[in-house]
């Protein structure tokens, strides 16, 4: 057999074995803390000291916790509203940018800024701005704030989708006599729709999880307390089994949404 035509064995030897072992250790590092929380949420004593039996009691306690339910509802309102606005504006932005002939460094910088600016800086900047304009703070100001980072995020995901899209199809459609609007409705939109929905799902989880910007732009009082703000005050108060149950539910929701997004659009999770 000619040696040069062998299929390269991509995984062999001691070094490869060590690497694989390391990868599994890294996965353990990433998952053990989360798994411990989930397990403890079913532990009767609620403490990590000993397993005293399986229980749903901590979930029951959550069901009777009015503050948590109020916060969950507030979070849902904020996340839905900010996702809707950001998906619309972000998708339009992506379409506008990708149909430009020349790349613009300034545009890219403006769209990159919300992703890298520290949350705490955006939080105090918006608080200063809303205070200067004498805005009443509440759920609506959190929505205004969350749209900022979600626009940039949706735009990035939809742009990746547009880049993988064969623009010859659009030319073909126009050549065949379709109007620009018909082409958009019948060709472009169906092609990018999975990407748009995936972006919306991811934006929704970002908004549901966001804490510090919401904390600064919410104003005081339970009327505008979101779930992360509620979790933060519970965590500051101390380690309680109820947080474990709440954490498990929140993670379950995030992961479900994420799996849906992944199924719709494989590129969405790559930067």
């Amino acid at each position: 057999m000619p040696e040069r035509h062998r299929v390269p064995d991509r995984h062999r030897g001691l070094a490869a074995g060590l690497l694989r072992g390391h990868l599994w250790l890294v996965c353990a590092f990433l998952y053990v803390p989360i798994a411990v929380l989930v397990l403890l949420s079913f532990n009767r004593s609620g403490l990590p000291t000993a397993w005293t039996g399986f229980t749903f009691d901590w979930y029951g306690a959550l069901a009777e916790n009015a503050a948590v339910q109020r916060a969950a509802l507030n979070t849902l309102i904020v996340a839905l509203a900010s996702t809707l606005i950001a998906t619309l504006l972000g998708t339009l932005l992506a379409l506008g940018i990708e149909s430009r002939r020349r790349a613009s460094g300034l545009l890219d910088a403006i769209l990159f800024a919300p992703m890298i600016i520290p949350d705490i800086v955006l939080a105090i900047a918006l608080l200063s701005f809303f205070t200067l304009l004498r805005f009443t703070l509440g759920l609506h100001t959190i929505v205004l704030a969350h749209v900022v980072f979600n626009i940039a995020f949706v735009c990035a995901v939809v742009r990746t989708r547009l880049k993988h899209f064969d623009h010859a199809i659009i030319e073909a459609s126009i050549d065949l006599g379709a109007s620009e609007f018909t082409t958009f409705r019948r060709v472009t939109l169906p092609a990018i729709l999975p990407g748009v929905i995936a972006a919306a799902l991811l934006a929704f989880t970002l908004s549901v999880d966001e804490f510090i910007i919401a904390y600064f732009t919410a104003g005081a009082g339970p009327a505008s307390t979101t779930l992360p703000m509620q979790i933060y005050s519970m965590v500051r108060f101390g380690v309680t089994p109820e947080i474990n149950a709440l954490a498990t539910i929140v993670m379950l929701v995030s992961f479900t949404v994420l799996f849906a997004a992944q199924r719709l659009n494989r590129e969405a999770l790559q930067p």
């Binding site: 989360i34 929380l37 999880d209 965590v235 993670m251 995030s254 999770l269």
Partner: peptide
């Protein structure tokens, strides 16, 4: 594998950080 590695990143930041309080406090694991 990439999905497996990225998945925890999409869970709540506060919760991921809180998990370390559970692990590392005096009565922790």
């Amino acid at each position: 594998l990439l999905f497996l590695v990225m998945l925890p990143f999409w869970s709540n930041y506060l919760i991921r950080t809180y998990a370390w309080i559970v692990l590392l406090n005096k009565e922790g694991l």
